[in-house]
Design a protein around this nucleic acid. Sequence first.
DNA 1: CTGCCGGTTGACTCGCCAGTCAATCTCGTC
DNA 2: GACGAGATTGACTGGCGAGTCAACCGGCAG
Lengths: 207, 207
Amino acid sequence: MTSRNPQGAIEKRRQILDAAIRTFARQGFHACRVSDIADEAGVAYGLVYHYFRSKDEILDTLFLERWDVLLAAIREVDDGDLPAREKLRSIATFIVESYRHDPELMKVIIVEVTRAANSFGRRHLGKISEAYALIAEIVAKAQADGEFKSDVTPQFAAMAFYGAIEQVLTGWIFDLLPSGSEDFPQATSFIIETICGGLEHPAVHSR
Amino acid sequence: MTSRNPQGAIEKRRQILDAAIRTFARQGFHACRVSDIADEAGVAYGLVYHYFRSKDEILDTLFLERWDVLLAAIREVDDGDLPAREKLRSIATFIVESYRHDPELMKVIIVEVTRAANSFGRRHLGKISEAYALIAEIVAKAQADGEFKSDVTPQFAAMAFYGAIEQVLTGWIFDLLPSGSEDFPQATSFIIETICGGLEHPAVHSR
DNA sequence: CTGCCGGTTGACTCGCCAGTCAATCTCGTC
DNA sequence: GACGAGATTGACTGGCGAGTCAACCGGCAG
């Protein structure tokens, strides 16, 4: 029977994960010790190893949990039949709102995984690229439909789009950009404006 | 007298730095040991500590050396009186060419410093932001002149621009994007097209 | 020839921290 | 009320790798 934990065990596990988010966000993955996480969670050192095989597995869990949600969101948008500009807007909004809702978790995911190409980033490269590929697909479809011009490969466009978003999040994370509540939607629409503006067909008079 | 090293010492120092670039690029900063650098350079372990106070100082040196060159290049472009689009093109070209010329060094700088926000990135945040600020200034000037529209803050625009470039480089570094010799100028002009296209005034028919 | 000093060597130290494990607790079950 | 399985505890170990250091080398100066 696993029913020994009416749900206490699941809660404890969650409690450790949440403590890990705070601890990783505050100190960084490498700089924090497992004992810091245990302290933050208010549990004994050894209990962390009852629920997770290693310190790495904690971060892996946090990343995968969240990234799968992101991928699902992108896929859902992708399947709809909005114009590409609106699809990309939904994705950008989703990511920005994720940050607004839980900045610590997003900080950990971006700083310790997505941009940590030599440690966790490499391990999860496949998962991360799935997002790029889905975005590229949206661009490719828009190019086929004539909504976007075709002088740029979808792969490059996807990277530029995602890179712009992530850099803005990074700016918020490290206080290089203002992050008042009105800045979030503004940044989102700016990114869409900029990237889609460049991707769409140029208008008559320009260049 | 320091003239004891007719120049042999300076060469040795350089030799260690070059070995460090290769070693960091191959294994990553954290995964490589100081002894790996020494081996790669063909010198004894202890000699590394004759020229550098610590392992960190080696990476700091590599980063500052290169970043100062980048800042100088941006400043020079900034001082000219090209249209903003061409200024940004010069900057993008400079960065992309830096990568083409020495991919290992750029990999180290991007992966281990620029995007390593919890270790070296934090230490050099000031230096890194200087680049963002200079780019933002170009955008601000273009907005004042009417070349760019003003519905986006220069700071956001700078982050998006730099983020797009860095993400493309990251794509090359990790083989997510094709990096044949024709891809470099193409990517550059794409980024300019996209970002400037979005920053400039929209043309008549669009939207 | 001798002394000196910067350059060079690599074996060793020392602190840190992930991960282990044996002991203890808790609580549902019979 | 006692048995057992999972939950919980925290002291301990083991390995790793950055940084130290005492010895050694080689060439120039006097």
